[in-house]
């Protein structure tokens, strides 16, 4: 039986223009789903909870999806009950999401809540699904600075896809416009908690200043008058190559980039 993979997609937000776009991580979740389709002969469903008239959905479809499923929700509705309800009955094996949405609350809770509701394990921040054998998936987690951790998990599971996963393929205008976007009636539940919040444009956060807590007058004077450490670095001109290399090596050791 082919695997059922569901990639959840949301409406992204461009960090510079604030314009709606295909979300980075959701795009990667679709890409991962499409690649699994090639390797595992799985079926991919791309699912969105929101409005089927949303133009951004066309940019996901443009990756080469013949159709998208939409659970019709209004702006103020909570996506989790609708998605949970759908997935209960969808017979899915793998649910892929982004780590955090680019619009809305961006809390990153959707995969956790879905996993909790379905009673499935959740794999956070994955970079790739290496293999699936006998109902057990070998997964690479993304750690900071390009490091990876291997984890195995039995199907079915929910995974959030990190920015380290393969980049979403280019979206093409023609297939995107031609794709069928099918709206489905969904369980609607108004997000009451959110209604009580106040939302405003992000205020710039003050940078933390180096506060000197001086005990003596001399220390305070020093803190107030001391020149900041000069920006100019050390330049070695006349030293031999060996000395220069030693100095560089010392710095590398200090910075712990070599062990």
């Amino acid at each position: 039986m082919p695997l059922n993979v569901v990639s959840l997609v949301s409406v992204g937000r461009h960090p510079q223009s604030g314009r709606q776009r295909r979300a980075e991580q959701d795009g990667r979740a679709v890409e991962l789903g499409m690649n699994l389709k090639v390797v595992q002969n799985s079926q991919l469903t791309v699912l969105h909870a929101g409005a089927s008239s949303e133009p951004v959905l066309r940019t996901y479809a443009g990756m080469g999806l013949p159709e998208l499923k939409v659970l019709e929700l209004a702006e103020q509705d909570d996506a989790v009950p609708a998605l949970g309800d759908y997935l209960q009955s969808a017979n899915a094996d793998i649910v892929l999401t982004g780590v955090r949405a680019e619009s809305g609350e961006s809390s990153g809770m959707v995969p956790y809540l879905l996993a909790e509701q379905l009673g499935w394990p959740l794999v956070p921040r994955i970079a790739d699904i290496v293999s699936i054998d006998d109902g057990v998936a070998e997964i690479l987690l993304a750690l900071p600075r390009g490091q990876r951790r291997a984890v195995s998990v039995p199907l079915p599971f929910v995974a959030s896809v990190d920015n380290a996963a393969a980049e979403a393929r280019q979206t093409a205008y023609g297939p995107g416009m031609r794709a069928r976007i099918e709206g489905n009636k969904a369980v609607t539940e108004v997000d009451e908690v959110r209604a009580g919040w106040q939302e405003s444009d992000a205020k710039p956060r003050p940078k933390r200043l180096k506060v000197v807590k001086a005990k003596t007058a001399a220390d305070r004077f020093k803190a107030a008058t001391a020149k900041p450490q000069g920006k100019a670095g050390k330049v070695m001109k006349s030293e031999s190559a060996k000395e220069q290399a030693e100095e560089i090596f010392k710095l590398l050791l200090e910075e712990k980039v070599i062990k």
């Binding site: 937000r13 609350e105 809390s107 809770m109 908690v193 939302e199």
Partner: peptide, 29 residues
């Protein structure tokens, strides 16, 4: 529990957290 994520201004009564990929401030209890 509904957590506050990317919270950056918190006291016992109210919390301001970043939403919409850092572009919004959400204020709540």
């Amino acid at each position: 529990e509904r957590p506050a994520v990317q919270a950056w201004q918190v006291d016992h009564a109210s919390t301001v957290s970043r939403g919409a990929s850092g572009s919004k401030d959400i204020q709540r209890a």
